[in-house]
Design a protein around this nucleic acid. Structure first.
Lengths: 113, 113
DNA sequence: CAAAAATACATAAGAATCCAATGTATTTAG
DNA sequence: CTAAATACATTGGATTCTTATGTATTTTTG
């Protein structure tokens, strides 16, 4: 099952931020592949969605970039800025809280891990 | 805390459908108040968001309506159609699955209820 | 009782966000 | 040598919700 896109709306930024928090630096294509792998293909971040998001986060000052050349190919690495780290924590907490609220509202029992 | 609106995007329809599954019939204003109450003010569904959603669900054939007069005031009740009931189950399962995936991705531990 | 708040419906313009499609270019695998 | 994978990016469009506005009735409160 691939989740309908409207569910992913609103979580894109947080997913990207969280991955960068766990991995120090990543480049765009790597992010799409990592999400695909971590979610067992349930969430597919397309490049048309990712790159605008990365640019938006960068212009908000949450990300910094460094460019590397792999042969002749450009690779653009993204990392969290200090404010990016703070914001990531806030956003993860917000989603966690939101999901608890939704579980009550939709009467979903969380699995005991 | 009120959740940033982009999180709620994509869950509106499911919230409305689930409330109707639990309550047989409800009217618009009642839905906004119930959500507010059930979520302890964390989710506020505005009327500008709700009515278009209700009309969309109705035109998809998931809801049926009946009008009542309370004094001179119109009250429009919404109920699930048979296909609405089916769809509600599907959508709740989808969100439950999505939330589990997000918990893995964001490394969130679900509370043991 | 008059004014304010709550109840109850609704629409319209706009912002935000993501998707699909498209484009370019390099590298690797068959 | 050709196809697939890697890697960047933009554009137009659809969807979805917000803000603002509008109308009207009923209830509460000073």
């Amino acid at each position: 099952m691939i989740f309908s896109s409207e569910l992913i709306k609103g979580t894109m930024k947080t997913i990207v931020l969280k991955l960068l928090a766990d991995n120090k630096k990543m480049y765009g294509y790597e992010i799409t592949q990592r999400v695909k792998q971590l979610t067992m293909d349930k969430i597919q971040i397309t490049e048309g969605a990712l790159y605008p998001t990365l640019h938006a986060l960068e212009s908000e000052g949450l990300l910094t970039t460094e460019t590397e050349y792999i042969g002749k190919r450009v690779r653009k690495y993204y990392s969290l800025s200090p404010s990016g780290k703070t914001r990531t924590k806030e956003k993860v907490i917000e989603i966690a809280d939101f999901m608890e609220t939704m579980q009550i509202l939709l009467d979903i029992k969380p699995r005991t891990a």
